[in-house]
Design a protein around this nucleic acid. Structure first.
Lengths: 228, 228
DNA sequence: GCGTATGGTGTAGTATATACACTAACGATG
DNA sequence: CATCGTTAGTGTATATACTACACCATACGC
């Protein structure tokens, strides 16, 4: 037992992990194994330990519950309305992450019966206030993807411009003009042309590009702002 | 005494309240009356009560400690590194607010010896990790002020275009062209011309404008994005 | 070799952003 | 009451960025 002079809320972290499956934006959910909401789907997350930072807690819970590890997570808000958890007052710090869905095999683990990807636009009914958190995460993702070159996280290291365009179209829910998109994205200078091409396609193979992290770091220092 | 099976961090809220004093952007600080950091300056804030939301806690603490009330606050992040408070593990949810400095008389109250405005670019040494929180708040304010018409909160209800321009120049730390600024801000359609002019000035009196909230609501519904 | 499917390219027109300088109006001063 | 100092208020030309749009190239399967 741990005692305090004043009541303390519990503090948790929750992660909205987005992945791209062809033309569908998906969200990684776990099926809860414990009460409350046992059997319901929820964002992966859990209690923050006393000796770890919030970011560390987010990464740990994500790995424990879904097997997804070594990814970048970004905090986007805290949710703490009284009553959002039936057990006790819980304040949750919410994170989002972007992964290449095919590079992360998900597996249920601690506290979870199951882990799976769902389309963001038709998720199952979610536990707690996770529907609201997911909504906020999605809004934040759309903002982020336009202003910083993070979309590449969804794709394999080498990708075609068409893949990249589909990605933006999917996340922003808007069609983009092929020629204008290519002009714009190449003009930013953050893409490096490789000598590789698509293979095993029943049409002309597309050239593959990769994100040039060093070039982006240089540009950013010079005051450049990514904006698609 | 309140007991829990697992240890719980304390949860606090902290507020970075910005005000504009002529050409200086200022931050509202309190001088702590209690340990730890008694005598140090800090962002106003305090513990979240069990029956109030995070937003409510922020507004309550602000009023209790500084007398500033009825203002809009916006959450911008949670800070919870172990060790940021010497007493116990404390996770703080941070808010920022924008006020017209002349309309809010500040007075020290509960837990504070004193409350005062400081220039954001040369604040005193701050308690806890509040310097880092202030830095994050400032970055957020700069982002916000460009993308949403919140700058008006700094000014009296009726203001001149020059006042508004100075405001943007101060917050963005960049000079703006007078004619282009006026064209751009008027073109947004969120300003309403009044029949009033400056008084008691030793030069031609400037026309006063006011923020047209209804017009902005209409425009936003139509997909308009404010962008200065 | 022909059909099918995607890759890859350029230009003209329009809208937006920038740079820039003078007259108007008011109070203060002598 | 003439002059000075100070800020208000205005327009245009140029450069830059955005938009819309159509055709040939190349790979594979049959």
């Amino acid at each position: 037992m741990y005692g305090y002079e004043y009541p303390h809320p519990a503090v948790t972290v929750d992660c909205a992990v987005f992945g791209l499956d062809d033309g569908d934006l998906k969200i990684l959910l776990i099926q809860r194994d414990l009460e409350p909401f046992a059997g319901s789907w929820a964002l992966p997350g859990g209690f923050v330990k006393m000796d770890e930072s919030l970011d560390e807690a987010a990464r740990r819970e994500l790995e424990e519950e879904t097997g997804v590890k070594k990814i970048y997570v970004e905090q986007f808000g805290a949710f703490g309305d009284p009553g959002r958890d039936p057990r006790e007052r819980v304040v949750t710090v919410a994170y989002y992450a972007i992964v290449n869905l095919f590079e992360h095999e998900v597996k249920a683990d601690t506290d979870a019966r199951n882990a799976a990807w769902f389309p963001v636009d038709e998720p199952p009914r979610l536990a707690f206030d996770h529907a609201r958190i997911l909504e906020a995460a999605l809004a934040r993702l759309q903002d982020k993807v336009r202003r910083e070159p993070v979309g590449f996280e969804f794709l394999p290291r080498k990708f075609s411009l068409t893949q990249l365009q589909r990605l933006y179209e999917t996340i922003l829910c808007a069609p983009l003009d092929k020629r204008n998109f290519r002009k714009k994205i190449l003009a930013t200078g953050v893409l490096e042309e490789t000598e590789d091409f698509e293979v095993d396609v029943a049409h002309r193979a597309a050239r593959l590009y990769r994100f040039d992290q060093k070039a982006y770091a240089r540009l950013r220092k010079a005051g450049f702002v990514f904006d698609i």
